[in-house]
Structures are given as C-alpha cells and as structure tokens.
C-alpha cells in the first residue's frame, strides 16, 4: 500500500510539474519595473527550484541542476541579473526535461528487459 501511495504521489508530482507546471509556475508575469530585478529573479529561482525538487522526488534529478542554481545565486548576489537569469532558465529546462524523462521511462523501461 505504501508503495502504491508513493507511486501515486510521484505521478501526481510528475503530472503537475510536467503537464502544465501548475505546481511550479509563478501565477503572475514578471514585472517590467527596473527595480524589481531581484523580485523577478527570486520568482524565477523559486520556480526552477520547485521543478528541481519535483525531479529529485521522482528520483530523476540530473547531475548539474542544483549546481546551476547555486551559480545563479552567486551571480545574483553580485547584481548580474542577466547571467543569473540565464543560469536559472538552464536549471529549469534541465529539471523539466528530467521530469519528462521520468514520466516516459515509467513505462518505457519494460521494453528493454531481456526476454528469452
């Protein structure tokens, strides 16, 4: 039963994150005000981190996703918002792709099992 619940919750996370991103995407568009760079960055970072955690929860996190997010924080702390945002976008792309990979592999692995 525990395994069923675990699998159900995993698929829920994958569905939420991979299909429409409702669990991770920010509700509002980024503000265009110049002094809101930090606010925009924080939202982007939180969104990417949400996807990363979902990928980790599915046991599918890629090697460098967390490192990219850490690098983006370092860039943001120095006020390099463009660079920080690019790193966040790369991290989010990795995490979303990892989730899609996990979703696909939840069935695809069966076709690779060696059979007589």
């Amino acid at each position: 039963m525990r395994r069923v619940l675990l699998l159900s919750s995993m698929f829920y996370v994958i569905q939420v994150a991979a299909e429409d991103g409702a669990g991770c995407r920010a509700p509002n568009e980024a503000s265009k005000a110049p002094d809101s760079a930090m606010t925009n960055y924080k939202q982007s970072h939180a969104r990417a981190e949400c996807f990363r955690l979902a990928a980790a929860g599915a046991g599918a996190e890629w090697l460098k996703t967390e490192e990219l997010l850490q690098q983006s924080v370092e860039e943001a702390l120095q006020g390099n918002w463009d660079s920080a945002d690019q790193l966040v976008q790369r991290a989010q792309f990795q995490a979303e792709t990892a989730l899609l990979q996990a979703q696909h592999e939840s069935e695809a692995w069966k076709h690779r099992v060696v059979k007589k």
Binding site: W62, Q94, Q101, E105, W109, K110, R112, V113, V114
Partner: peptide
C-alpha cells in the same frame, strides 16, 4: 537497471 536517466539518457542495460 533498465531505466534511462541523466542528461545522457542512458540506462545500466544500455
């Protein structure tokens, strides 16, 4: 063992 994972999309069995 048979699940592909990671950025290179490889399984153990690959």
């Amino acid at each position: 063992y048979y699940t592909k994972r990671g950025q290179l999309n490889f399984s153990c069995s690959d």
